[in-house]
């Protein structure tokens, strides 16, 4: 029978882990986004500002934006993977609901979004 772990396996393991870690570091270093796009069936239907509260149901998916973060509040898809995807706020981050063909993606960069606003 073949071995359980060979040299090639370990090389593969390290390469994949490294690629994954680099990818994550890269994504986390992106700035907080300022606006997000809602994409339905491949077309951008709406651009929303992360500064404003937002809640809308699109194609069966309820997309919410609160305090600069976007998350999926409700969805009629069977697996509800999108609902467990957490909250996104950084450029490049996204949440997708494949069965409903809906995606929300945070756009480009703008530095210095405040942590809070007085008044």
């Amino acid at each position: 029978m073949k071995k359980l772990i060979t040299k090639k396996d370990l090389i593969l393991l390290f390469v994949v882990l490294l690629a994954g870690i680099v990818g994550i570091v890269f994504m986390n270093s992106a700035d907080e986004g300022k606006s997000a796009e809602i994409i339905v069936d491949g077309k951008t239907t709406e651009i929303i500002s992360l500064d404003e509260a937002y809640e809308k149901q699109i194609n069966g998916v309820v997309i919410c934006c609160e305090k600069g973060e976007i998350y999926i509040k409700e969805s009629n898809c069977p697996d509800k993977v999108c609902m467990r995807s957490g909250r996104i706020s950084k450029s490049g981050e996204s949440i997708i609901c494949a069965p409903n063909r809906v995606a929300v993606k945070i756009n480009g960069k703008k530095g210095n979004l405040p942590d809070a606003i007085t008044g």
């Binding site: 990818g23 994550i24 996204s94 993606k105």
Partner: peptide, 15 residues
Amino acid sequence: VQTTAIVGYAPVLLI
């Protein structure tokens, strides 16, 4: 979904 937004999932899936 027809957007490259899915690329965001790649690093975590790799790990």
